[in-house]
Amino acid sequence: MSPNVTLVLVSGVLVACGVSLLLERTLTRVLVGVVLLGNGVNVLFLVASGRPGGAPILGVSEAADMSDPLPQAMVLTAIVITLGMVAFVLALSYRSWQLNGHDEVQDDVEDRRIVRRAELDEASASYDDDTRDTPEPRAVPGHRDTPPLADALRPDDSEAVGRG
């Protein structure tokens, strides 16, 4: 089977555009990316179905002229699933916009906190220095000169505070 080059190209361009949009931080762009990517893959199913032919219905076209019905059934299923996904992502980005006033995907707060600890050369919050009974609890020997972690974290965490 030699594939239809036009369809291959269309599929490739759609997938490429979809992937590049998927890497964006804004959810609406991600949404458009999902649409393009989904359609690109669906076109790939058309490539997989081989040469075009008549409707695969007995009595309408000869068996030899029929196109392969199976990929069409699969594409139909995939289209329905993509539709559902698009609706869900749309709702999600709307909700995100409702809550935050934008629909950018945010960083993991906890991850960022751990990164900041590393930058400050602080011990991890899970580090148990066993100094609870000593006058200065939670102090890490040798790191007294670093600013207290709480102050260092506060400005950046403003968005996390006041979440409803």
């Binding site: 594939p3 893959v41 790939l44 199913f45 699969m74 995939a78």
Partner: peptide, 9 residues
């Protein structure tokens, strides 16, 4: 899904 399409092809 891409893998399925290619496998079918």
């Amino acid at each position: 899904l891409t893998a399925i399409a290619l496998i079918y092809a």
